[in-house]
């Protein structure tokens, strides 16, 4: 009679809200960006070349693989599959992109970002500027929040974990008690 009820209530506070919001926002941005890069592989190849950071032989493989990593990571992030891992990939990718942008700005290059975002639709230039750095810094902040502070809710990982533990619990209660 005195047993405490099992806490099955979903708590949803500010941290959970921001985790969900950042996760969906970043996931959608990366899926869109990867989609346009996958559709126009040569355009992304050109953009990668223009950054002048990779040796020539590595550019084709990089420009083929990267959009798919973005796509998979974006999907994992939205659905919450391999949640922590997808956050880590995002964080590392964003930091690397930011470094590439800063290096080219310091070189005084006037070039397109090649980010694959529909910025021209909302009147923002796709050219590399310090605004691009600022925008990416916001993304890095969101990503860092997800890696270090997030409280994952509504994720596939949690769903699978719950099912697994429920199954375990059911199995343990089915076992006859041995004294």
């Amino acid at each position: 009679m005195n047993e405490k009820p099992v806490k099955d209530k979903i708590s949803f506070g500010v941290r959970e809200f921001f985790s969900l919001f950042f996760r969906i926002l970043l996931g959608l941005i990366f899926i869109y960006a990867s989609y346009s890069k996958i559709l126009n592989p040569y355009s992304f190849y050109r953009a990668t070349l223009e950054y002048e950071l990779l040796p020539l032989f590595a550019v084709p493989v990089f420009s083929i693989i990267l959009p798919w990593i973005e796509m998979f990571t974006g999907l994992c992030l939205i659905f919450g599959a391999l949640y922590r891992s997808s956050n880590l990939i995002f964080f590392v990718m964003l930091v690397v992109f930011e470094m590439g942008i800063i290096i080219n700005l310091l070189r005084g290059r006037n070039m397109d970002c090649g980010c694959g975002l529909p910025l021209d639709l909302i009147g923002i230039s796709e050219k590399l500027t310090w605004m691009t750095v600022l925008r990416d810094s916001v993304f890095i902040f969101m990503s860092a929040y997800l890696v270090f502070l997030s409280k994952p809710r509504f994720t596939l990982d949690r769903l699978l974990l719950r099912r697994k533990s429920a199954k375990k619990l059911a199995q343990s209660t089915d076992k006859p008690e041995t004294s």
């Binding site: 592989p41 084709p60 493989v61 693989i65 798919w68 998979f72 997808s86 880590l88």
Partner: peptide, 29 residues
Amino acid sequence: VGSVIICITASFVGLLFNMANPNRIPLDY
């Protein structure tokens, strides 16, 4: 480990997709 799994799977799919894409990028520049 999860990150490596995501990257390997995505790379594999990307390379397969590129092979099937008529507008493919040759791996050899």
